[in-house]
């Protein structure tokens, strides 16, 4: 399926859930507090990742901590 991950159009094997995409396919650590995920510009808290199924052309943003002023 085609997803837009962090702004880039990406072909991925259809994941079972958002959790499957982020942790298994994309290899982000399975830990809370280090990054957050939004789908189509809506925050999805980690406790819901296994409940969220993705569809073609969904926008998936994965954001972490950076320094700032």
């Amino acid at each position: 399926m085609k997803l837009v991950i962090n702004g880039e159009s990406t072909e991925v094997a259809t994941p079972e859930s958002l959790f499957d995409l982020v942790v298994n396919h994309l290899q982000y650590p399975d830990e809370s507090g280090r990054y957050i995920v939004a789908v189509n510009s809506e925050l999805v808290t980690k406790d819901r990742w296994t409940d969220v199924a993705l569809k073609d052309n969904d926008l998936v943003d994965i954001l972490g901590v950076i320094t700032g002023g």
Binding site: L63, G64, V65, I66, T67
Partner: peptide
């Protein structure tokens, strides 16, 4: 201490020395 957030790859999340120090 002010901080911000941006899109990050899995590698950037795993190896974030500034976050660790903050």
């Amino acid at each position: 201490v002010t901080v911000s957030l941006r899109r990050q790859t899995a590698g950037q999340v795993k190896h974030n020395d500034y976050r660790h120090r903050i």
